[in-house]
């Protein structure tokens, strides 16, 4: 495992409550979700929908399916877990996940160098 690099990708004011925004990272496009009331308020997963094959996941509707927090792809409506990246409808499909933290006004993603190499946008 390689080291985590923390990269600032957005400001607090960029976030949209109960929804997602797209950010650019060295590992490619990521989708950042903000759920203000929850235990863990910030989640980040890949923005690229591997089924619809387009960068769209940040524009999906956020919700929960049987307690699992998910985003529904706006293209073909498959659900992806915000915490694991797993597609609920197809166990062979998943998207990458990123660690997220808030540092004052900055929102930072933890990117692994390996992820940077492995990810083709």
């Amino acid at each position: 495992m390689s080291d985590l690099q923390w990269i600032t990708v957005a400001r607090q004011s960029d976030l949209i409550a109960e929804s997602g925004i797209a950010v650019w990272t060295p590992a490619g496009p990521a989708a950042l979700f903000y759920l203000p009331g929850s235990k863990q308020p910030l989640y980040a997963i890949g923005h690229y929908d591997p089924i619809g094959k387009a960068n769209v996941l940040a524009r999906g509707i956020v919700g929960d399916i049987k307690g699992e927090l998910v985003v529904a792809s706006p293209l073909y409506k498959q659900h992806f877990s915000l915490s694991t990246g797993q597609c609920l409808e197809d166990e062979t499909v998943s998207v990458p996940t990123f660690e997220v933290q808030r540092d004052g006004d900055d929102i930072k993603l933890g990117i692994r160098v390996k992820q940077v190499e492995g990810c083709a946008a």
Partner: peptide, 9 residues
């Protein structure tokens, strides 16, 4: 819960 892509719209 949080809602979903059915009930929210």
């Amino acid at each position: 819960g949080h809602g979903c892509d059915i009930c929210k719209p």
